[in-house]
């Protein structure tokens, strides 16, 4: 019962309930004198009760259907979701199965075997988030948290160069729209990636706690990439402690994603799990962790081709799509065409 949560005396609560005020929303548009009459209490006491009840007077006039402060109706949420932009992965096929790309306000986990292209995808997203909205980005900055030491500037520069070339190519096509606008230089892309190098799990936890403050000072950050969430948590950990730490971290990341409307991308490793007499491949960090992320994408080899598979998502159906890691970054797979051998 919601009334039970009000910080008022038990006697007053009893009076409220017996008078029929069982839900806080019933109190929202009452005047103190009305309430005092109904409950047969003094106006001061009534005022006290209403002080704790949500003040929805002003909200009512703005015609948003708030019931409790901070709550939203599903209708509003749908509208908001339709406005949300997504960050392209630069592979049209992956974008298609993801409904346009990596979504904001969500925590997305991407896992796969070593060498499948997790870091490449991470770097690609850190670059793509900076693209203007019509190019599939959000025009924002990226936070890249490197726990494994696989972030190589020369590779980022390569991907940024390809991205900037692609952008100027599209700009010339639709020149009338973007006339006079200078395309982004590869250097700019690098400037907008805020890179944190984390060498232990304590640093990782401290950094994630600090992100809230950091992002409130850097509001233009639109994606947080952690490559990888796993590495420091696979060393000799007490499993119960690990589950607690990771759970706390996941909650904070989710909160960040919602609060600042940004995308959180966690890269994860794979491990083998012993089940029903055989070893199976699964993402690391255990079963409880699998609840921590809203979306889960698994990258895997299928023959000589790389594939991305949506393993978990509240809004997308399971699907897989091929992709390729090229000199330019993540791109569509070219399996049907002649494969260009990189040398």
């Amino acid at each position: 019962m919601e009334v039970g949560r009000l910080p008022i005396s038990a006697a007053l609560k009893g009076k409220l309930v017996s008078a029929g005020y069982t839900s806080l929303s019933l109190l929202s548009s009452l005047s103190p004198s009305h309430l005092a009459r109904d409950l047969n209490i003094s106006e001061n006491e009534a005022l006290d009760i209403l002080k704790h009840a949500p003040h929805d007077g002003q909200v009512d006039t703005s015609s948003v259907h708030h019931i409790i402060n901070g709550a939203q109706t599903a209708w509003d949420m749908l509208h908001e979701e339709e406005l949300l932009t997504r960050i392209t992965t630069s592979s049209v096929d992956i974008d298609n199965i993801l409904g346009g790309g990596i979504s904001c306000r969500d925590v997305t986990e991407i896992g796969g075997v070593p060498g499948i292209g997790k870091t490449q995808l991470g770097i690609q997203l850190a670059v793509n988030v900076q693209l203007p909205i019509h190019c599939g980005g959000l025009g924002g900055k990226a936070i890249y948290i490197d726990t494994e030491g696989s972030f190589m500037v020369e590779r980022v520069l390569q991907i940024a160069e390809a991205c900037s070339n692609d952008m100027s190519a599209t700009n010339t096509v639709s020149q009338d729209v973007h006339a006079g606008k200078v395309g982004m230089q590869p250097r700019d892309f690098l400037e907008n990636i805020l890179y944190f190098r984390v060498c232990s799990y304590t640093e990782q936890i401290a950094l994630i706690n600090y992100l809230d403050k950091f992002i409130s000072e850097h509001r233009d950050v639109k994606i947080v990439i952690i490559d990888s969430i796993t590495f420091h948590f696979r060393q000799d950990f007490d499993m119960a402690l690990r589950t607690r730490l990771l759970g706390g971290m996941a909650l904070k990341l989710m909160k960040l994603a919602k609060k600042f409307c940004l995308a959180v991308v966690l890269l994860n490793q794979v491990t083998t799990k012993y089940a029903e007499g055989s070893f199976q491949l699964t993402l690391a960090l255990g079963d409880s962790w699998s609840h921590a992320c809203t979306n889960r994408i698994i990258l895997y080899w299928n023959g000589n081709e790389r594939y991305a598979y949506i393993d978990k998502s509240p809004s997308l159906r399971s699907a897989s799509a091929p992709y390729a890691v090229t000199a330019k970054g993540i791109r569509n797979s070219v399996s049907n065409c002649k494969r260009i051998k990189l040398m």
């Binding site: 640093e203 950094l207 950091f214």
Partner: peptide, 29 residues
């Protein structure tokens, strides 16, 4: 040490030669 200090400017990676230019080219330096 504060979390702020973990924000570093990504530096270009220095490479150690293998002692053979052909192998170096293969390994990106």
């Amino acid at each position: 040490m504060k979390p702020e200090n973990l924000l570093v400017r990504p530096r270009p990676t220095q490479k150690c030669t293998t002692g053979c230019p052909v192998l170096d080219r293969c390994l990106g330096g």
